[in-house]
Amino acid sequence: MAERIVLDDASKPKLPRHAKLRFDKARDKWVILAPERVFELDEIAHAVISLCDGETTLVGVIDKLAEKFEAPREVIARDVANMLQRLADRGFVVA
């Protein structure tokens, strides 16, 4: 039986097998496809998800985003952790 995944700094998040990231030409945005669901990603959400390769830790993901975006690291860290935990709770991120 599955258990709830609670992400921490050392977790290595990735999309589960049943979720697929693809670019949707007609709507000009990235989407995650899952059973009966389409998650539309904005630019930042896509930047986060693309770093979730199952090898980079949560801290590593945050570091890379902190290099890329002009925002205080603690703000990025909080937003990214919240977003990924929300996705994990709905089964769209595993670690």
Binding site: R27, K29, I32, E36, R37, V38, F39, E40, L41, D42, E43, I44, A45, V48, D79, N82, M83, R86, L87, R90, F92
Partner: peptide, 15 residues
């Protein structure tokens, strides 16, 4: 079926 909850960042623009 469409879910925009993944738009965690505040830059979400309405489709």
């Amino acid at each position: 079926i469409v879910d925009q909850a993944a738009q965690a960042a505040k830059t979400a623009k309405p489709a």
